[in-house]
Design a protein around this nucleic acid. Structure first.
Length: 435
RNA sequence: GGAGGCGUCGCCUAGUCCGGUCUAUGGCGCCGCACUGCUAAUGCGGUUUGGGCUUUACCGUCCAUCGAGGGUUCAAAUCCCUCCGCCUCCGCCA
């Protein structure tokens, strides 16, 4: 949520932001009037309550008629206080409800527009020219099956479409990626974290995932818990309702968790393979820092993502997302998109958002420094979304015979293996009877 | 899942039985000032969080806040109910 004071003092800025997002501008005026009502009813309650307390203190000492009169007046006041309290409650709830609907203020440098209006900032590496190399690239699923690494048929049999098994070398590849990513994050000063995959509504709402994207979230009705779509949620909520001394900032966490996404409304999109799935694992960077440092930290997160993709020797580009594609929480967002040869385009592998104080306000995470207690800033960035990274590695590093070159950074985590080779069956290479 | 205990403003703690003088006690820590070659010690003052009013700072003031939410009452940290969390024991279990 944003600062109500900003809304009062500069409503036009908030209106402009809502407009840029393609969201309800009238919300600003509903909110202004709800806030007005909240303050007015609050003042009324305060005054009545003050009077009630003042008179109440006289009662134990009073006698006879004087006491009877006091009891009569405080009796009346009691009813009035109760009514004012109810009104104040109602107004505060209304204001809060509207405030939670409001998106974050869009960063002034974010391009205005929708999903197609992103801006390409940089390109790294060069896509391979398979024609010049003399063969047609296989897609990641074909490669994954050849290597005995990916099994989507059985994933569908057991769990439905968009589910998969990583088998044999595929499983090892994930573990290698996760280990390498955690190693990079740890070297950069992040604290590794394994987080809960099920969270309460407060955590989900606080991070901003119960608004427009609510349909994309799994909910367990029986327990009123949500399956997280990213460890950003439990990491952001880790310090919920806490006040953090500024000297401890920045707090940098590298979370590893499964991520669950219903992918509602994406029917027919990316149906082949494991590019878009209901469940995948991810190493996520999450930072609590001061609002003053947020912008610079955002650049650092982007730099760590670039370092990661470069170390995997993947060609990729960096884009800045347009205002309409930011999601409720982000004021600004960069994606790194890796080249996918068989699709002939760049696809999102990582994403980093600066949410400023938006999530912190909702979650009640504050900092204390010489200026007192105030909300801090939170930022997040993907380090390694495993399935999509596997897609990019298989396709970009494939060889004519269907084997796949292992980027050097992963070799220590794969027993020194330099190439992944096709197998007769997923279990063949791991069976004790092999060779 | 069952039984019991506990939850006080950073930490510890008094208060809860018996409602009002609780504006929540004391200690530790922390901050400021004084004293002091320096440090230590000592003394004095301050130290939950949120909201409102005062111009948005300062100062001041009012209200809320004793795990959360309801209720009883003129009045709730204190009495009643529901929920949450932690601890102990029992049952079940990876």
């Amino acid at each position: 949520m944003i600062d109500l004071r900003l809304l009062r003092e500069d409503p036009d800025r908030v209106r402009a932001s809502q407009r840029a997002r393609g969201e309800d501008v009238a919300l600003v005026d509903s909110l202004l009037s709800a806030d007005e009502r909240r303050r007015a009813s609050g003042t009324r309650f305060d005054e009545l309550r003050s009077e009630q307390k003042r008179l109440g203190k006289l009662i134990p000492k009073a006698q006879g008629d004087e006491k009877a009169e006091l009891l009569r007046r405080t009796g009346e006041l009691s009813a009035a206080v109760k009514a004012a309290d109810a009104e104040q409650h109602e107004a505060a709830e209304e204001a809060q409800r509207l405030l939670l609907e409001l998106g974050n203020i869009v960063h002034p440098d974010a391009p205005i527009g929708g999903e197609e209006d992103f801006v390409v900032l940089e390109q790294h590496g060069t896509p391979r020219d398979f024609a010049a190399e003399g063969f047609t690239p296989r897609d990641h699923l074909e490669l994954g099956e050849l290597l005995g690494a990916i099994d989507t048929e059985r994933g569908a049999k057991v769990s439905g479409s968009r589910f998969y098994y990583l088998t044999g070398i595929g499983a090892l590849l994930e573990l290698a990626l996760v280990n390498a990513a955690i190693a990079q994050a740890t070297a950069a000063g992040f604290t590794p974290m394994l987080t809960p995959n099920l969270v309460k509504p407060a955590a989900m709402a606080g991070t901003g995932y119960l608004g427009q994207v609510e349909d994309d979230v799994y909910h367990l009705d029986k327990d009123d818990l949500y399956l997280v779509g990213t460890s950003e949620v439990p990491l952001a909520a880790y310090h919920m309702d806490e006040i953090i001394d500024a000297s401890r900032l920045p707090l940098r966490y590298a979370g590893f968790s499964s991520c669950y996404r219903r992918e509602a409304g994406s029917y027919g999109k990316d149906t082949r393979g494991i590019f878009r799935v209901h469940q995948f694992d991810k190493v996520e960077m999450f930072v609590f820092t001061t609002p003053e440092e947020a912008e610079a930290e955002h650049q650092r997160l982007l730099a760590w993502e670039k370092q990661w993709l470069s170390s995997l020797e993947l060609p990729f580009q960096v884009i800045e997302l347009a205002s309409g594609d930011l999601g409720a929480s982000a004021s600004r967002k960069f994606d790194c998109e890796a080249w996918v040869p068989t699709q002939g385009k760049y696809r999102e592998l990582t994403s980093t958002s600066n949410t400023l104080e938006f999530q912190a306000r909702r979650l009640g995470v504050r900092m204390r420094d010489t200026d007192g207690t105030r909300p801090l800033a939170t930022l997040n960035g993907t380090l390694c979304a495993v399935t999509r990274t596997i897609v990019a590695i298989l396709e970009n590093h494939q060889l004519p015979d269907g084997s796949v070159r292992v980027p050097e950074v992963l070799r220590p985590y794969l027993g020194g293996r330099e190439v992944l080779e096709p197998v007769a069956s997923p279990t063949a290479a791991f069976s004790t009877n092999a060779k």
